[in-house]
Amino acid sequence: MVQKPNTEFQAKQARLIHSIPKLSFGKRLKKDLKKNWVVYVIFLPVLLYVLLFNYAPLFGLVMAFQDFNVLKGVFGSSFNNFANFKTLFFRDNFGIVLRNTAGMALLNLTVGFIVPVIFALLLSTIRHKRYKRVIQISSYIPYFISTVVVVALWKEFLDEGGVIANFLSWFGFRNQNWLANNKVPVFWLINTAIDIWVGFGYGAIIYCAAIANVNPNLHEAAAIDGAGEWKRMWHVSIPSIIPLVVTMLTLRIGTVFLQGFDKVLLLYSPSIYSTADCLTTYIYRIAFAGSADYGVSTAAGLFQSAIATTLLIISNYLNRKITKSSLF
């Protein structure tokens, strides 16, 4: 906008650089409001929305500390300090719920994370462009199917006699309804498998783009040195995308707790609560099914929020440390 002074000018003006005594905050605000009031007025709907749906609920968190009674409402219910949390933590199944949540999250961060990367790498070694495109487009299809349908399909396939059950029976597993199997990693693996099926194509997009953007000179140099597709992938593509992979992983740590729960809600059934129940579905059940204990449910929600936020901060810190850049 205003031309930057060249150094000659700058030198001359150096003695004229003023630390202008800034107008007081109030005066500057007034000036700014006068100039920009239209913009702020236009912003009001957004402000309203954010206050209502994002900030107002935060006040409801006070319910976590209350002996909440629906009839008495927030203002009428008495406080019970941390009693809700005590109830929560010492319930029989809370430890199990935590274990399940951690287990599923861990799988998500390891297997669930690496598959799209591997897929993208494999895809990059395919030279036939048409075929590659067909594969890519097919891989996007599961992403666009609604969760309800995805769950319905998998329920059918995992049922006794369904495709997957049949397939697994070739390997010696009893042909059974896998969604009724309560042994520990079964449900977690199913959950991760569905996550992968749904997300591997879409998740690979960013890695495909990164691989495609690798400096072609590197590839040429490797090819001249006699490296074929596979070797080139190992020695050129992979090292080039490692920074991106690390970034994505650290970002994922921050969000792993916040998603995928409606799928579990649709998939599970009481017989497998002991392995399938995770924090978010637990909160849902306490609130909407059975005891309707809003206080404890909110306490659990607050607990989950705290963990999620901590993870987010940690992941952002890690990310910044590693790549010297931040999320915001």
Partner: peptide, 15 residues
Amino acid sequence: AYYKLKKKKYVLSLN
């Protein structure tokens, strides 16, 4: 006229 160089530093542009 002054224009802003940094947060509190202004440069004299027209004198």
